[in-house]
């Protein structure tokens, strides 16, 4: 029978035993989600800042779309990426379906809107404050982008962590485009679904605890670094 104690000991055994399969799954999870977050940040930070800085026709629509896509259901993102990468789809030639790269793409689609939309908000606040001073320095808008991103860095760190949290926690998208292939595309969340389906609830919950622990560790690391920098730089 399932009890929390049971799941907890299972999690503990998995961690202590350093099970090879588990290590592979955890490594792949982190690899996929960190890569997705990195690429989404490289695209989303400048994109969000650009939307904050420039006034153009249809800007309101862009902001509404970005905000709406923050709530994109992972399964839908997965389905869209599947249809793109499927052999019958426009990018089928690349042969990316059922690979970690496909999972990275699906997660980027999920978190890019979050990073871009929240970056837009934070950099717009900074821009309102800095606009006159930066204009006085004769800073061009393109040059202002890195300035605003850097000066919003503490808020943006939280934004990126939110993106990482969503990427590492979602299952619907990676299940469809990755296929949950043992040893190739099986990550923490799809492994949890598989174990749940097998009725192995303590193991599923144990894996869930490990996932939570990892995300918490990464958040704690970022938090401590952020606090240290904040203390030093204000």
């Amino acid at each position: 029978m399932l009890s929390e104690d049971n799941a907890f000991t299972t999690a503990l055994q998995l961690i202590i035993g350093l099970d090879e399969t588990l290590v592979g799954i955890v490594a792949l999870s982190m690899q996929v989600s960190l890569t997705a977050v990195l690429i989404a940040a490289m695209l989303g930070l400048p994109l969000g800042a650009a939307v904050a800085l420039w006034r153009f026709p249809g800007r309101g629509l862009v902001i509404i779309i970005l905000n709406a896509f923050m709530g994109l259901p992972p399964v839908v993102a997965g389905l869209v990426v599947y249809l793109m990468l499927s052999r019958a789809g426009p990018l089928g030639e690349l042969g990316l379906l059922f690979t970690p790269s496909a999972m990275v793409i699906a997660q980027i689609l999920l978190i890019l809107p979050i990073i871009a939309a929240l970056t837009r908000q934070h950099t717009e606040e900074r821009w309102d404050e800095y606009r006159e001073q930066l204009t006085s320095f004769r800073v061009s808008r393109v040059r202002a982008i890195p300035t605003l991103l850097w000066d919003a860095r503490f808020s943006l760190m939280t934004v990126i962590l939110a993106g990482f949290g969503r990427a590492s926690a979602e299952v619907g998208a990676v299940m469809i485009v990755g296929g949950n292939i043992d040893g190739v595309t099986r990550v923490m969340t799809t492994a949890i679904v598989l174990e749940t389906n097998k009725g192995n609830l303590p193991l599923a919950l144990g894996l869930g605890m490990i996932l939570l622990l990892l995300v918490a560790l990464i958040n704690a690391g970022a938090f401590l670094i952020g606090e240290e920098a904040r203390r030093r730089l204000g």
Partner: peptide, 26 residues
Amino acid sequence: QAMVFQRPVMLRRSAIANVTYALAVQ
């Protein structure tokens, strides 16, 4: 030219970095 405002706008960096930033963009 330069301008000093009623309420100084300080970038979220160290004092000296505020000055080197202005020099950099110049």
